[in-house]
Design a protein around this nucleic acid. Structure first.
Lengths: 336, 336
DNA sequence: AAAAATAATGAAATGCATTTCATTGAATTG
DNA sequence: CAATTCAATGAAATGCATTTCATTATTTTT
């Protein structure tokens, strides 16, 4: 048996002395076909390495069983893949889609505009979309949803988001991080991250909530990052520290990478971590566990996330209107 | 214009007062059609949000313009995505496939057997495969190649590999690492990695070559890892150090993650890095740059790798027989 | 001006599998 | 035993786009 010989359902029908419909039914295990006939047909199909042509099948069924997944490459690039969380998420989605017998079409980084996605749908290249990270594409996503594309987005939702969003509870994550830092009697807080991203804005708000609800008087500064690679955060941290005589004693960083870069910068200025400064990161990527010192962080479970994203999209494709949902985040304390 | 209205080529033909073939030709910019007619047809197609049904197209063309990409999930799992290199590679491949107008089908982790791949081909779900990391699937890959599957593998090749392999020059990487370590007058070498992986075996051989060609007398030990997650390497490092009174003074680790874990273990035993021990990792992942101390490593360029993988596969699909090729590796020295 | 070549278009066949509807023979019912 | 139901199967239509081949109108050649 080799890949060279193309066989069609008609060929199998002839070889099995039955008609095409019978082969079709036998292979899809239809109850309309006699068990013996089924086995006979299957045996012949197996022998000739026959597999139903998916393209003919998709054409007929008007359903592709294919989900297109688009990563937020734009911020990924600014990140230099330093934070592998989005890939863990992709692995989670991939695994769950496999379980659901759905194919995963990975969208190319360069084709990230609404026309591409509309075209994907109109040409029946995929039944729906999963967007990992909304990044700064919110306008596009909103327009795409209004266009009628079945889609689920990993990110943060607000009241009027016209598409279903699954995301970790950024607000809760911020609250947990804030409470943790407050427990340490810290007074000078610093939030590191670009709050023009909805997810990050949620984390910042959670932090504020925790502070407001404690009856402690603390100061909060913000460092609005414009680039997320380690080197860049390191540089921005240094500029910040140059311009601020009093160093912060509590830092909440929008991701682990930024937390590590900031620690690095502080270290080089003779600051002891975690004695002088308490730090919380976000995502629980592997290096946080072995950074010196290990970093406390907010954890989101990529497999569970993938599960939920896929489940919601399947609901949507079945004609329902799934509700946005938030996955509980948990604080991982790694005090040394 | 919304996603709801399915339009076929026949509809566009009617609306444009031409026949289906003319629409087909106009949309594929065939020279057979008058320019004005083309523009007229295109305008109507655009107006109605029409896009050619890819499934009908694939069925007719007998070519899918889809490449299935399979990651080495098995070792990925043992790795806990600690080493993001394989994802950088995936991003590279994704980018280049996009440029080539090829769709990227990401294979599910659980479906990693020859039957799945044969089925993918026979059912015309993809034209060919790119395997990222051969891992321990060599027998399967060999059988798949003999079956006739168009495929390119990222990994290491040997004389008789029956498929085209693109990979970084592991041997050269090993030589470079060895020479670097020898320059530091080190005497007790340790290689950390599982040499049953071809790629890693190549690195080990390169190290040996460098040692043999120097006229220095040095000892080389091997630590055969069985699990690659940071925690596990850390543990295995500790066991090794417990059992060896003389600590190594030169370490070449099969990847950066293992290098970092080993440094971690040594540090906790009071060993100074890089004073007492010189270390070289592999892959140049982001954390090596900001680890304390920064780690020298062997770099492979993921975009260039993706470019070459895709180019070779396209050659193969055009009926040629591309040669295996090796990408130069370079040593990144990060001495502090 | 007739013959030949060219440009532009369409009818019908094709790629492959599935669905609807009809048919056959066997089994069950009254 | 005739009438009815059921199980199993097949012929033909369908999904949508592309290709081959034929046709018409137009331009070029002699």
């Amino acid at each position: 048996m080799s890949a060279k010989q193309p066989v069609t359902m008609g060929d199998i029908a002839r070889l099995a002395n039955v008609s095409k419909p019978t082969v079709s039914r036998a292979l899809s295990d239809s109850p309309l076909v006699n068990e013996e006939t089924k086995e006979h047909v299957r045996a012949i199909a197996r022998k000739h390495g026959y597999a139903v042509n998916r393209n003919a099948q998709k054409l007929r069924h008007k359903r592709t069983n294919t989900i297109a997944v688009s990563l937020d490459y734009q911020s990924l690039r600014r990140n230099h893949v330093a934070d592998p969380f989005i890939f863990e998420l992709l692995a989670g989605v991939s695994e769950v889609l496999g379980e659901e017998n759905q194919d995963l079409l990975l969208c190319a980084p360069s084709h990230n505009n609404i026309e591409t996605f509309q075209h994907m749908l109109a040409s029946r290249g995929a039944d729906g979309f999963i967007f990992l990270g909304q990044g700064h594409r919110e306008d596009m996503l909103e327009a795409l949803a209004k266009y009628g594309a079945p889609m689920i987005v990993w990110g943060a939702s607000s009241e009027d988001t016209p598409y279903c969003v699954v995301g970790s509870d950024n607000f809760l994550g911020g609250v947990l991080a804030g409470q943790y830092l407050l427990q340490h009697q810290r007074k000078n807080f610093l939030f590191v991250g670009d709050t023009t991203f909805k997810e990050i804005y949620g984390r910042r708000n959670g932090l504020q909530k925790a502070i407001d609800e404690s009856n402690q008087t603390v100061e909060v500064k913000d460092l609005a990052l414009n680039n997320f690679s380690y080197e860049s955060v390191f540089e921005q941290a240094n500029i910040f520290l140059d311009n601020n005589k009093t160093y912060p004693d509590a830092i909440f960083a929008f991701n682990d990478n930024a937390a590590m870069a900031f620690i690095h910068a502080l270290r080089l200025r003779g600051v002891s971590i975690p004695e002088d400064v308490s730090i919380v990161g976000y995502n629980d990527i592997a290096p946080t566990r072995y950074f010196n010192p290990p970093i406390s962080t907010v954890r989101q479970d990529p497999y569970q996330a993938g599960k939920l994203l896929v489940k919601k999209l399947m609901e949507k494709l079945d004609g329902n209107t799934p509700e946005s949902e938030v996955i509980k985040t948990e604080l991982i304390v790694r005090e040394t």
